[in-house]
Design a protein around this nucleic acid. Structure first.
Length: 1034
RNA sequence: GCCGUGGUGGCGGAAUUGGUAUACGCGUGAGUCUCAAAAACUCAUGGCUCUCAAGGCCUUGUGGGUUCGAGUCCCACCCACGGCACCA
C-alpha cells in the first residue's frame, strides 16, 4: 500500500515536472548548443537566388554598466526578424561590434589609472556574455571593435582619402575650455555653460583643428532623404539640422562717416590712403565700364561735372564720351583713374621734407592715362600732373628714360589741350572737398544683410553685425580714433563668452555703436552700424537688419540704444497700430505695407513680399541667397582614447599624410592620463621617436585623435570584410550585402551619426568604391524604456531595471517577449514589474499546452477525430496574423494573438492535431527561441527535419482553415448599434437576406416602427444600418 | 518661440485606416484548491445620485464641423513629451 502511494506520488511529481516550465535549465542548455553548433555564422556573400536581409543594430559603446533593458528591446526586435527571415529561407546578415573608443573609459583612466584598453575589454566581455544569455542570434564571426588597429587602420585610410580629396582640412576654431580642469571639453560635457565635472565657467579657446568638409554634400544630404524609408520626423530633423533656408541678401553700403560730415581736405587725409584709392578706383571703373553704380551721389557728381564742363575747351566737349567721363568725374583728378592691376605706387620716405609721391598709369577704354601726385611737407598742397596719351603713344611710368623729344612734344601738345593740366586746375580745394564728401558717402564695403523678412526693408533703422564678422571684414581700421578701444574691448569680451552666455534675454542684450554708417538701399537713409554679440557669425551673413517696429528683439535693442523706430506695416487692429506708431511695441503680424514707396498698400506677406523681392533683385540691391546651418565637421579631439589622426608635420609646420606603409598609425601606450590641458599624445616619447625615425629630425606628429563619430561612420561596411588586410572593405561583399535593409537605432543618434555616415557613404561612392548613395535603406527607432515610475531610468533615481535580474527570475524568453509586448517598438513605455509575470505565465502555459498536445497525440487513443475545429481555426488565424505582424514589427499585437491562442487552447475539450502542434511550436521560435528549441526537441523524430528549430522552415498557415463559419453583423438604426445578427459566412453578400433578418429582430424594429426608412446601408460582413427620417416623431 | 510626436478604462496598450471602441496583458473584486499563505486555475471588471431587471444614456484631451456612421477626416483650442533655439 505504501509502495503504491509512493508510486502515485512519484508519478504525479513526474507529470508535473514533465510539463513544468523551467527556463533556467533549458535556456542554459540551448545557449550552449547554439554556440557549439555555430548556427548563425553567415557567410558574407549572398548565395545566388536568395534574398538578403542586412539587419543592423546601432553601434554600441561598451559602457561599464553593462547591458541595459533598452538594448535588449532593440536587439530582441532585430533578433525576431533575423530568426523569422532565416526560417523563411532568406540570407540574414546580422553582425555585432563595438564602438570601443570614447570618453568614459579615458575619464575612468584619469581617475583610477586603469588603461582604457583594459576597461573597454572587460566591458565588452560582459556585454558578450549578456547578449548570448538573451539569445541574440548574432553572427559573432564578424564581430569588430573600433579600437582594434586592424579597424582603425582603415579609419585612418579614409581620413587620408578625404585629405587627398581636399575634404579634410585644418583651420582655427574655438573649443570649449575648462580653465579649472585645464582641459578641452566636448559639447556634451558643457552643461549650461559650466564644466560638468567641476562647475567652472567654460570659456572659448581658439585652436587649430581638423575638419571634414561635409558641407560639400549638403544638398545631396537633403535630396538623398527621398530615397530612404525612414520615420518622417527623423528626416525632418535631418533637414532642420542642415537648415537650408532661402532668403535675400540685401546690400547695405557702409560708409566711414556720417552724412553731415564736414567736407574738408583734412578729413580726406584722415582716411588711409589705400582705402581712398580703392574706393575711387572701384567707383570710377564701374562707371566707365557702364555698370550700374548705385550711389546717392550721382547727382552731386553731375553737378560738379557741370562746373567742370564749363572749363572744358570747346573741342574737348565734342570729344568722345570717354573723355567726357574722364573729365567729368572730379574724383578722377588724382585718385580715380587707375585701372585694375596697373597701379604703380610709391611713397616717398623723406622725413625731412615729408614728400609723398604717388604715380600710376592706367588704360581706360583705350585712353592711356598717367597721373602723378605729390604732397610736400604734409601741407596738403598737392602737385598734380595728369596726362593722357594718344592711342599711338606708349607712355609708361616705368620708363626710367625720358620720352623722346618727339614724344615729349606730343605729350606737351596733349597736355596743353587738357583741362587736367595743373594750370587748368579749377580749384584744388573744391576737388578735395568733393572727394572728401564722396569718401564719406562712398562705401568702404557693401554689407550684406541676410533676411527672410525683406518686406520690412523700408523700416530698417540700424544694422547689427556679429563681432567675429566685423573683425573678419577688417572694419576696425575705419573706426574713428575715439571708438577704437571701446569696440576692440567689446569684441574681445564677446569672443570669450560661451554661446550660453551670449544668449541672454532681450533686456540684457549688449551692443556697441561703431560710428560707421550704412545706407538703407531703398530709403537712402544713413543708419548706424552696431556690433552686438547676439548676432552670430555663422547665421546668414552675420549681419542683421534692425527693424524695430516689426521685430520684438530689434525693438528691445532700439529702445535700449535709443534708435529710431519706423513702422512700415499697418494693421487692421487699430489699437495695435497706435501702439506701433507710438513706439510702444513691435508687431510681427501680417498687415499692409506703408511708408514703403511704390509698395504701399500691398499685403506685407503676400504680393508685397513677392514684388519687393523681385524689385530688389532687379535693381541689384539684393540677391537670392540660400544659407545652411550645417557646418563642417570638427573632428579633432584633444583626447587619448581615439583613432590617431594620421598626419605628421615637417619642420616648417606643414602637414603631410602618414605614408600608407606606416598604417596603422598606432595609438601609443606610453601616455600620461593627467589632464594637463594638452593632448595626452604629447606625453608619448614613443610617438615622437617614431615620427623622427620615419620622417626625419624636426618632424612632429599630430597629437589629436579623431572624434569617435568618425569610427562609427563606416563600421557597417567593415562588417562585411573584417579579415581583409588589404582593403577597408571587400567591394564584392559590400556590393552583395549593402545597403543595410533595416537599421534599428535609438532616437538619440538620429542626427549626427546618420548625417556623418551618409556623408562617408557619398564620399566613398564618389571615390568609386561604393555603388549606392544611401547606406541605410530602412530605419526604425526603438523607444525608451522608462522606469516603473514612468521616469527615465537612472542610478540616482533608483529606478533601473537590470536585465540580468529579470533573466534570473523569469528567464531570457520572458524578458525578450515582455519587452516586445510592452507596446509599439518605437514608443517610450514604462516598465511594469507585474506585467512581466503575465508574460511568464503565458510562456509557461504555452509550454504545458504543447507538451499536453504531444502527449495527447502520441497516446494510442488519439486516432479519433478531434472534438472541435475552432481551436485549429484560431491557430491558423493567429499564425497568419503573426506572419504578417513580424515584418511590420508589430510584435505587441503578434504576441497578443498568441495569447489569444493559448486562451482558446486552454478551454476544455479541445486539442490540436500533431501537425498543428508542430506549427504551434515553430510559431513562437522567433519570440521565445529557447522554449521553442526545447519544445522542438520533444517532437517525434519524424517531425524534426533539422537539428534546430531555428533552421526549420516557417510553418504554413491556411487562410481557408482560418475562415470563420459565421460572422456577427451589427444592426444599426441611425448609426447606433441596436442588435447583433449571427450570419453564416456564405451569406454575407446577400443584403436582402440580412435586411430581412434584421427586420425580424425586435431590438431593431423597436426603433424603426412607425418611422420611414430612408435608406439602408450595408457594409458586407460588418454592419447594416437603417437610416430613418429623423423629423418623424421627434 | 519654431519644428515634430502624441492625448483611448485604475495602468501598458488594441482597433483590418470611415463601419460593433476598450482586443491582449497588468491591476482589482469574487471564487476553486489549502489548516493557512504563496503559486496556479475559474468568473467578473469603462462610467452613470437612469433601472429590480431587460434595457437606456454617456464615453477615445476640449469645442465645433463633414457623414447614414468619426478614436480615425476638417477647423479652432488645451495639455504632455521630444528636438532645435538670440535663426535675423
Amino acid at each position: 500500500m505504501a509502495y503504491l502511494a509512493d508510486d502515485i506520488v512519484h508519478m504525479i511529481h513526474y507529470l508535473a515536472m514533465k510539463h513544468s516550465y523551467d527556463p533556467a535549465t533549458l535556456e542554459k542548455r540551448w545557449q550552449k548548443f547554439w554556440e557549439e553548433q555555430q548556427l548563425f555564422q553567415d557567410t558574407a556573400i549572398v548565395p545566388e537566388g536568395k534574398k538578403k536581409e542586412y539587419l543592423l543594430f546601432a553601434f554600441a559603446y561598451p559602457s561599464g554598466s553593462g547591458l541595459h533593458v533598452g538594448h535588449v528591446e532593440s536587439k530582441a526586435a532585430l533578433d525576431i526578424l533575423a530568426r523569422y527571415y532565416r526560417m523563411q529561407g532568406k540570407h540574414v546578415f546580422f553582425p555585432v561590434g563595438w564602438d570601443a573608443f570614447g570618453l568614459p573609459a579615458e575619464n575612468y583612466a584619469i581617475k583610477t589609472g586603469v588603461h582604457p584598453a583594459q576597461t573597454t575589454d572587460d566591458a565588452i566581455t560582459t556585454f558578450q556574455k549578456q547578449i548570448k544569455r538573451i539569445g541574440i542570434s548574432y553572427d559573432w564571426k564578424n564581430e569588430l571593435r573600433t579600437s582594434d588597429p586592424t579597424y582603425y587602420r582603415w579609419t585612418q585610410w579614409i581620413f587620408l582619402e578625404l585629405f587627398k580629396a581636399g575634404l579634410a582640412y585644418k583651420k582655427s576654431a574655438p573649443v570649449n575650455w575648462c580653465p579649472s580642469c585645464n582641459t578641452v571639453l566636448a559639447n556634451e560635457q558643457v552643461v549650461n555653460g559650466e564644466c560638468e565635472r567641476c562647475g567652472a565657467s567654460v570659456i572659448q579657446k581658439e585652436m587649430n583643428q581638423w575638419f571634414f568638409k561635409i558641407t560639400q554634400y549638403q544638398d545631396e544630404l537633403i535630396s538623398g532623404l527621398d530615397q530612404v524609408d525612414w520615420p518622417a520626423p527623423t528626416k525632418q530633423q535631418q533637414l532642420n539640422w542642415i537648415g537650408k533656408s532661402e532668403g535675400l541678401s540685401i546690400s547695405f553700403p557702409l560708409m566711414t562717416a556720417p552724412t553731415n560730415h564736414s567736407c574738408s581736405t583734412n578729413s580726406l587725409y584722415d582716411h588711409p590712403y589705400q582705402h581712398t584709392l580703392q574706393i575711387a578706383r572701384d567707383f570710377y571703373l564701374s562707371y566707365l565700364q557702364g555698370k550700374q553704380v548705385f550711389s546717392p551721389l550721382l547727382d552731386d557728381v553731375v553737378l560738379l561735372t557741370r562746373s567742370f564742363w564749363n572749363h572744358l575747351l570747346e573741342k574737348d566737349r565734342k570729344q568722345s564720351q570717354v573723355l567726357f567721363r574722364l573729365y567729368a568725374l572730379p574724383k578722377v583728378y588724382n585718385l580715380l583713374s587707375v585701372a585694375e592691376g596697373t597701379l604703380q605706387y610709391s611713397k616717398g620716405n623723406d622725413t625731412k621734407k615729408h614728400v609723398e609721391f604717388w604715380s600710376w598709369q592706367a588704360e581706360i577704354e583705350g585712353v592711356r592715362v598717367g597721373v602723378t601726385v605729390r604732397s610736400v611737407n604734409n601741407t596738403h598742397k598737392h602737385l598734380y600732373s595728369i596726362t593722357w596719351l594718344s592711342e599711338t603713344e606708349n607712355f609708361s611710368n616705368k620708363q626710367k628714360t625720358a620720352p623722346s623729344p618727339a614724344d615729349q612734344s606730343l605729350l606737351r601738345q596733349d597736355c596743353k589741350n587738357s583741362v587736367l593740366q595743373r594750370d587748368n586746375f579749377v580749384n584744388h580745394t573744391t576737388i578735395m572737398e568733393y572727394l572728401s564728401m564722396l569718401l564719406s558717402k562712398t562705401p568702404i564695403i557693401t554689407l550684406k544683410a541676410w533676411t527672410k523678412f525683406w518686406e520690412t526693408v523700408y523700416g530698417v533703422t540700424f544694422l547689427v553685425i556679429a563681432p567675429e564678422t566685423f573683425e573678419q571684414l577688417g572694419l576696425s581700421e575705419y573706426l574713428a580714433q575715439d571708438l577704437q578701444q571701446k569696440v576692440a574691448d567689446y569684441i574681445n569680451t564677446a569672443k570669450n563668452k560661451t554661446e550660453e552666455e551670449r544668449a541672454v534675454d532681450e533686456k540684457n542684450k549688449t551692443g556697441v555703436d561703431t560710428g560707421l554708417k550704412a545706407q538703407n538701399p531703398v530709403t537712402g537713409e544713413f543708419i548706424p552700424l552696431f556690433i552686438a554679440d547676439y548676432v552670430l557669425e555663422g547665421v546668414g551673413t552675420g549681419v542683421v537688419m534692425g527693424v524695430p517696429a516689426h521685430d520684438q528683439r530689434d525693438f528691445a535693442f532700439a529702445k535700449k540704444y535709443n534708435l529710431p523706430i519706423k513702422q512700415v506695416v499697418s494693421y487692421a487692429d487699430k489699437a495695435l497700430n497706435i501702439q506701433v506708431k507710438n513706439g510702444e511695441r513691435a508687431a510681427e503680424q501680417e498687415g499692409i505695407l506703408i511708408n514703403s514707396g511704390q509698395f504701399d498698400g500691398q499685403e506685407a506677406w503676400g504680393e508685397g513680399k513677392q514684388n519687393m523681392a523681385d524689385w530688389l533683385v532687379k535693381e541689384g540691391r539684393a540677391e537670392w541667397n540660400t544659407t545652411y546651418k550645417l557646418r563642417d565637421w570638427l573632428i579633432s579631439r584633444q583626447r587619448y582614447w581615439g583613432t590617431p589622426i594620421p598626419i605628421v608635420y615637417d619642420p616648417d609646420g606643414k602637414p603631410h599624410p602618414v605614408k600608407e606603409e606606416h598604417l596603422p598609425w598606432t595609438l601609443p601606450t606610453d601616455v600620461d592620463f593627467k589632464p594637463t590641458g594638452e593632448s595626452p599624445l604629447r606625453s608619448s616619447r614613443e610617438l615622437q621617436a617614431r615620427v623622427e625615425r620615419l620622417y626625419g629630425t624636426g618632424w612632429v606628429p599630430e597629437y589629436d585623435t579623431m572624434d569617435t563619430f568618425v569610427d562609427s561612420s563606416w563600421y557597417y561596411l567593415r562588417y562585411t570584410s573584417i579579415d581583409d588586410n588589404t582593403h577597408a572593405f571587400d567591394a564584392k561583399k559590400v556590393q552583395s550585402l549593402l545597403p543595410v535593409d533595416l537599421y534599428m537605432i535609438g532616437p538619440e543618434h538620429i542626427v549626427l551619426h546618420l548625417l556623418y555616415s551618409r556623408f562617408f557613404t557619398k564620399f566613398l561612392r564618389d571615390q568609386g568604391l561604393l555603388d549606392f548613395d544611401e547606406p541605410f535603406v530602412k530605419m526604425r527607432h526603438q523607444g525608451m524604456i522608462l522606469g516603473p515610475d514612468g521616469k527615465k531610468m537612472s542610478k540616482s533615481k533608483g529606478n533601473v531595471i537590470n536585465p540580468d535580474d529579470v533573466v534570473d527570475k523569469f528567464g531570457a524568453d520572458t524578458l525578450r517577449m515582455y519587452e516586445m509586448f510592452m507596446g509599439p517598438i518605437d514608443a517610450d513605455k514604462p516598465w511594469s514589474t507585474t506585467s512581466v509575470a503575465g508574460v511568464y505565465r503565458f510562456l509557461s502555459r504555452y509550454n504545458s499546452l504543447v507538451r499536453q498536445a504531444l502527449d495527447y497525440n502520441s497516446s494510442t487513443s488519439t486516432k479519433k477525430t478531434l472534438p472541435s475545429s475552432s481551436l485549429q481555426k484560431k491557430l491558423h488565424q493567429v499564425g497568419l496574423k503573426v506572419s504578417s505582424d513580424i515584418p511590420e514589427m508589430r510584435f505587441n499585437t503578434a504576441i497578443a494573438a498568441l495569447m489569444e491562442l493559448v486562451n482558446e487552447w486552454q478551454t476544455e475539450g479541445q486539442e490540436l492535431s500533431l501537425g498543428d502542434t508542430v506549427r504551434a511550436a515553430l510559431l513562437i521560435a522567433p519570440f521565445a527561441p529557447f522554449l521553442a528549441e526545447e519544445l522542438y526537441s520533444l517532437l517525434p523524430a519524424g517531425q524534426r527535419k533539422c537539428k534546430s528549430v531555428h533552421l526549420e522552415d516557417w510553418p504554413e498557415f491556411s487562410p481557408e482553415l482560418a475562415k470563420e463559419d459565421a460572422v456577427i453583423i451589427a444592426a444599426q438604426v441611425n448609426g447606433k448599434v441596436r442588435s447583433e445578427l449571427l450570419v453564416d459566412s456564405s451569406a454575407i453578400d446577400n443584403q436582402t437576406l440580412i435586411e430581412e433578418k434584421a427586420l425580424m429582430d425586435t431590438k431593431v424594429t423597436h426603433w424603426i416602427d412607425g418611422k420611414t426608412v430612408l435608406k439602408v446601408i450595408y457594409v458586407p460582413g460588418k454592419i447594416i444600418n437603417f437610416v430613418l427620417n429623423t423629423n418623424e416623431g421627434a
